[in-house]
Design a protein around this nucleic acid. Sequence first.
DNA 1: TTTCACAAATGCAGACTTGCAGTTCCGCAA
DNA 2: TTGCGGAACTGCAAGTCTGCATTTGTGAAA
Lengths: 208, 208
Amino acid sequence: MTKIATPSLRERRKAETWTALHEAAASLALERGLEHATVEAIADSAGVSSRTFFNYFRAKEDAVLGLQEPVLDPQLLSRISPRVDLVGQVSRLLVAVARTALGSTDARRRRQLMAAYPHLAQRQMEYMVKAEALVCEAVASVLAGDPSWAAGAEGFGADDTARMLVMIAGIPVRFNLTSAGYDPVRGLRPEDLDPSLALLRQIQRKLS
Amino acid sequence: MTKIATPSLRERRKAETWTALHEAAASLALERGLEHATVEAIADSAGVSSRTFFNYFRAKEDAVLGLQEPVLDPQLLSRISPRVDLVGQVSRLLVAVARTALGSTDARRRRQLMAAYPHLAQRQMEYMVKAEALVCEAVASVLAGDPSWAAGAEGFGADDTARMLVMIAGIPVRFNLTSAGYDPVRGLRPEDLDPSLALLRQIQRKLS
DNA sequence: TTTCACAAATGCAGACTTGCAGTTCCGCAA
DNA sequence: TTGCGGAACTGCAAGTCTGCATTTGTGAAA
């Protein structure tokens, strides 16, 4: 028997309203333009009041893209082993967490919207930052349990080391997200990181 | 005869209004709390209309901190030599540019405000992002003129290389800005970067 | 000196966002 | 089945922010 057998009526209705709002926001934005898709119109279209809209989404942009708070699956964390390709592992973890913030949306629509309104991408980036913070905390706890990292570096603690490590691992992710070739429809996939991880290694070698 | 001998009356009045608004915003926020210092009150106190307030500042927070658009001095750029400690040089350039976004404010007041309202610091970080974008473009042009970097790396162009390099150089800056010991009053100074640059090098050595 | 172009300021209207208080209705336990 | 506590919804009011049309006053040219 799985946990998600029968969500209560309350939860079901909540999910329905979320979807209705997201759906309304995306399609209205597409058909009449983002600036003419007012919150009031979106809420009306979903059958709730404007005020309720903001109980579901912090901002209109979030509703259009279907953005949610990112979540870190503990399973993924337990699979991290600090010995080999740590940057690669953390980068992929970042991507996995970041993906949880993206609700499912019709691919075609998503492409059109993000192409037409660049600040939607910026909004998405803010969720990326949240994901980074989440991962940062988690990685710190992993490193604390590993003898070769627990000590930290000279003049810095293990937390500082973890924080900087996550920043380094964030580079390939941010690089991909800001690349011209980035396809917001597919989103970012762990394997997409390989080229930018290679570039990072190349630059580091060149610098030293 | 310097260029700034006599700014026109227009420019002088503009600067005066800017200062008056910033002054009013900071002191009102301090004495009655940020949320009770409304834009209308700030504008009144500076002797202009609410609408005019937004001709000078994008948001109330910017007025309180006296934030401006960051600027890159071409002189600094011309001093970059891509051969030695490139990351360090770009990091310091980032700091220099970021500092141009911070208008002069009374130190005591600044400390109190940023301590009381953490989202002011977040707002400041957004200007940091702009500075990074500015530097990124500039560094790309510098690297393009250097034979050992102009080619880029395999599979990537020189612009990509520059972009990632600036991201790497941004790490020590972001690290310092998010450190517990960061003092928003003094702001960030180029020499503060040395320890975090060392930490970055240490971690990179450990990873390879 | 007069005139002209333009930057700055303003009022107004409308949209976004949040806090507060009151109401409705689901879920649970007696 | 009933009743209760709390979650969700709602309207309202205040504040933030932007676009547009209009006015005012400065700086410069004629």
